[in-house]
Design a protein around this nucleic acid. Sequence first.
DNA 1: GCGAAAATACCCGGATCCGGGGATGGCGCC
DNA 2: GGCGCCATCCCCGGATCCGGGTATTTTCGC
Lengths: 219, 219
Amino acid sequence: MPIPVALVEDHATLRQRFTERLGFFPDVELTLAVGSGEALLDRLGTLPEARRPRVVLMDIELPQMSGIDATALLKRDYPAIDVIMLTVFEQEDKIFRSIQAGAVGYLLKDASADRLVAAILEVDQGGAPMSAPVARKLLRYVHDQPPTPAPADDPPFELTPRETEVLEHIVQDETEREMAEALHISPHTVRTHVKNIYKKLHVHSRAAAVRVALENRLL
Amino acid sequence: MPIPVALVEDHATLRQRFTERLGFFPDVELTLAVGSGEALLDRLGTLPEARRPRVVLMDIELPQMSGIDATALLKRDYPAIDVIMLTVFEQEDKIFRSIQAGAVGYLLKDASADRLVAAILEVDQGGAPMSAPVARKLLRYVHDQPPTPAPADDPPFELTPRETEVLEHIVQDETEREMAEALHISPHTVRTHVKNIYKKLHVHSRAAAVRVALENRLL
DNA sequence: GCGAAAATACCCGGATCCGGGGATGGCGCC
DNA sequence: GGCGCCATCCCCGGATCCGGGTATTTTCGC
């Protein structure tokens, strides 16, 4: 049973080209090709569920309603339908807005027919086709987000309970004398704890220790 | 010229298996295989830049220092080296923590040798190899984040461009003398910039400055 | 009871940081 | 031309940090 696919592309000649390119593949069937997001939503409203596409190829640059806005509305009303964005070239801000609108794939318009069909199949099977640069951008986005807290059971950098306590005071920017008073121990003891912490974190200064602590959510 | 690759895997038999599997491919060369994150960092410290690996295959489950912690330290000290995480099965929380530690690839340990080498080549060319489920998880993460706000026109804490530059070097844990050399200015100049930065961030030490910079994402 | 790890404490000398202040020149704006 | 801001440079003295070690006691699991 071929996967029913819809295409949203405002240029008629390009719609024709896509129709021809997909026509040679038995695994997919272009059952709908429209020129705008509005038209897609209108048509979907008239189709019974069995006749709806499972995957939509959505041009990101559409007149009036953008492909991103159309994707958001589509996913709102038909969450089971997967959307692959089509664009001429990759723009980072639009990649993220597409994904946040609910697209699960992102392809260049001039991708080969093989590539297109492979993407449709991958999406239909729960994947998320994207080019290498797009994947790297996603990683960078996740990397730049605030750190995801680690499960508490994972002992971070093998710090002992007392070392963790000292590290907390380091992050609070206390001097070693102040730490000693707060913990009721000798400043010499604090010094030794600090040296051991530095060794475990592979750092050579309290500023670096603070950074590792915050970046790895040790506290 | 084959890509120099390092492997961090605590089980000797698995290290041997990886060595054998990669041995048949002329595009990559396993130049280093160690049993722990600590050992990797130690070895890297003794290697000149030309002899360092370009890609590291990092077992996520390592005794003592975890693969994630090792990745964070590795990226801090050797940002040009790419890391591919190896795991037995995909755990969502570790995927994200791996990426936030700086990994750019994520593979199952039982991936075929072809898949492994393809991933190494992809990473080396700026890609981010991942399985379909992992890609879908990334998309879901991005989708679930609050919409990305436009960058504020207001510079945070009113730091001047030069002060921001100095702050970056502070976060990199350089001494004031090192900063002076890097920026081609006098250490006295760096000192004045540092004092001005402290005043604007309302802190009294570089550790506190690092903390404010990281917590407020000033860089 | 034993061994290992953790916690504690101490010393030394060098390096760096910190905060107080001062100064000059360039640049853009009024 | 004057003003304010930015970037630059300098000096001083005190405080703190850092890394090299060493040692003893306490705690905990076996």
